[in-house]
Design a protein around this nucleic acid. Structure first.
Lengths: 153, 153
DNA sequence: AAAATAAGTCTACAATTGTAAACTTAACTC
DNA sequence: GAGTTAAGTTTACAATTGTAGACTTATTTT
């Protein structure tokens, strides 16, 4: 897997993630926008949201625009970069053997556009040229050596 | 997305996840196996590992086998179920518009077996019949209505 | 300019998580 | 069966996270 930690920023927590989504979606947002958007979805007080905004600034994911007071908060990384960070963190800890079935399941369960599917399909065709017959488990340091494929049995 | 919370067990934390991987891989394990396996990878004391084992039991993810003392700890959910739980939790919080590119990236960056690729390819062919031209953002409750596709611009 | 409001900061506190020492109990070894 | 060792339990403590009240400072309104 390729690791995509843009800098070495600390991770975005689930609650903080909700704030980032709005900022990304609106391409920057003011406090009151964040408050009203988030309160439609989450049962949070203003105070909670302000805390999350502050922590995201401290962590380096949000930056204020300008010096006048209705500040606009901007994200310091793109949404896709944020998503990559989250997915990479997750996939880095999955058994290699289970990644295939997991991706199949995700493709199955999510709505993809025609273009996504076309791209995927091309990508797969390319990969088929060099794909191995099986992907071995990599959960144990010595799995291949000692268990010779006997792990997960 | 399909939600896969097998029961309503609390979530498995990252450190706990490492323990589960070994249990899954070895199809059940004793304390000393967990300790030696994990210490090859993580810089943890025995004590830390014992704590994680205990918490996993409390959370309902590990169960002891038998009554004699070298207990064997068994997982109460399959590895794939655990992985599904983790990935579903993550994907449930991604903007629908970004799921496609994210899956493409994951397929690109991971090693898949010939069979995985074949299955994926068939799945994609099936999906192409009914896939929409575009997948709209679902970050804001009223994104479609109010922003008419203007979000994320 | 005074009042009202919105924005921002400070402080707080409980739950979860990472990390681990110390203690107890069962099992194995001589 | 006494001692050693492995396993299991209890307790602990700091960091992070979720959650939020209270206070301060700008900004806007009348």
């Amino acid at each position: 897997m390729t690791s995509t930690q843009p800098e070495n920023l600390p991770e975005i927590s689930p609650a903080e993630w909700e704030v980032m989504r709005i900022v990304w979606t609106l391409n920057g947002a003011q406090t009151h926008e964040l408050i009203s958007s988030l309160q439609e979805k989450m049962d949070w007080t203003e105070s909670t949201i302000k805390t999350l905004i502050r922590r995201l600034q401290q962590k380096g994911y949000l930056q204020r625009q300008g010096t006048q007071r209705p500040y606009v908060y901007q994200a310091t990384i793109t949404e896709q970069a944020g998503i990559n960070q989250q997915t990479d963190a997750l996939f880095a800890n999955l058994c290699a053997m289970h990644v295939g079935p997991t991706l199949i399941r995700l493709v199955k369960n999510n709505t993809l556009s025609q273009q996504d599917l076309t791209e995927l399909s091309q990508l797969i065709a390319t990969k088929q040229a060099t794909a191995p017959a099986v992907v071995a488990c990599d959960c144990l340091a010595d799995c291949q050596v000692e268990n010779q494929g006997e792990c997960h049995e």
